[in-house]
Design a binder for these strands. Structure first.
Length: 181
DNA sequence: CCCTGATTCGC
DNA sequence: GCGAATCAGG
């Protein structure tokens, strides 16, 4: 069965990916003999990159920016065209959600609760609680008003910079996030 | 050694 | 467009 990317599968892929699921997890859940490579490839092809809830805090963009072309035995016949520095995807420095510090200052005293990926609704705050890699990882779960976060978390997530050139980057980010949810 | 995503390139 | 192979890092 050729695993064709139907609308249904693509939709599920987007959802799971934006929910913070890892490529391997998504691949396994999708079944159909889809490998994580296929998932990642599709994700990138769709233009999806950088989720709201990163599975792993590690792996910075700077670190990821390395060379991965020195492949072995490269016949390089047809295309033989050396690619210079093709500008892949330059993401501007936008205000990204910052997780609570280690001492846990508890930015939200009245944590309603711990919405898991299963119980997390479409309009629920997707502010990550705890370590994403941990099994006890959960979300805020309150009503999401701005983007995917509730009012309070949105305020922290989209920390307005004191200096802004008139254009509101936060709104732009919120808009782009809202696009998926 | 496990995992993660990123990238390249042949199909 | 698709995905295996590969790379690089945690």
């Amino acid at each position: 069965m050729t695993a064709g990317w139907t609308e249904d599968r693509v939709g599920a892929l987007k959802k799971l990916w934006l929910e913070g699921q890892s490529a391997s997890q998504i691949a396994k859940q999708l079944g159909g003999g889809v490998t994580r490579n296929a998932v990642i490839g599709k994700v990138h092809r769709l233009g999806l990159s950088g989720r709201a809830a990163p599975s792993q805090p590690a792996r910075t963009a700077a670190t990821t920016f390395r060379t991965a072309r020195p492949r072995p035995a490269a016949p390089a016949q047809g295309q033989g065209m050396a690619q210079p520095s093709a500008p892949r995807r330059l993401e501007a420095v936008q205000p990204k959600p910052v997780q609570p510090a280690a001492p846990a200052p508890a930015p939200v005293p009245d944590l309603p609760g711990t919405a898991t990926v299963m119980t997390l609704g479409a309009h629920m705050c997707k502010w990550p609680i705890g370590d994403p890699s941990s099994r006890e990882f959960s979300f805020c779960g309150r009503r999401a008003s701005e983007g995917v976060y509730c009012v309070e978390h949105a305020r922290v997530a989209y920390q307005p910079q004191t200096k802004r050139g008139g254009k509101d980057g936060a709104s732009d980010l919120a808009r782009s996030l809202r696009r998926y949810i």
